[in-house]
Design a protein around this nucleic acid. Structure first.
Length: 103
DNA sequence: CCGGTGACGCGCG
DNA sequence: GCGCGCGCCACCG
């Protein structure tokens, strides 16, 4: 399948907000396939942040999911902080404040 | 075909 | 709130 629907949904996340993998999966019409969302985002090339704001997708606990290649998650945090998304001392985002409520 | 592998999520203790 | 186990399912070798 193509990741078209996934990317289209991620593009809807507004600046300064975040969505979870599971949430994107549901909105994209593929419920219970949160892993596919991560897989799709992993397929993006570096520099695609303009077209697809992949950094606005975090896990259900509000934290940045660890990648195979360490260090790339640092970039995600920097990008989020640059749009005023706050992290607590444990590196977690308060989803009550920053979760994107679609619709 | 088959088994291993995830940028995941949820229920349980 | 935390770790653990298990379910999920497309991909890949």
């Amino acid at each position: 399948m193509s990741y078209r629907r996934i990317y289209a949904t991620v593009r809807r996340i507004p600046r300064g907000r975040v969505a979870t993998y599971g949430q994107i999966a549901r909105l994209a019409g593929i419920p219970r396939q949160a892993r596919q969302v991560g897989y799709a985002l992993a397929a993006l090339r570096d520099g695609d942040a303009d077209a697809v704001p992949w950094h606005r997708v975090v896990n259900a606990k509000g934290e940045i999911s660890r990648r195979a290649t360490p260090g790339s998650d640092e970039l995600q945090r920097v990008l989020l902080e640059s749009e005023r998304v706050a992290f607590d001392s444990l590196g977690r985002i308060d989803l009550r404040r920053f979760l994107w409520r679609a619709g």
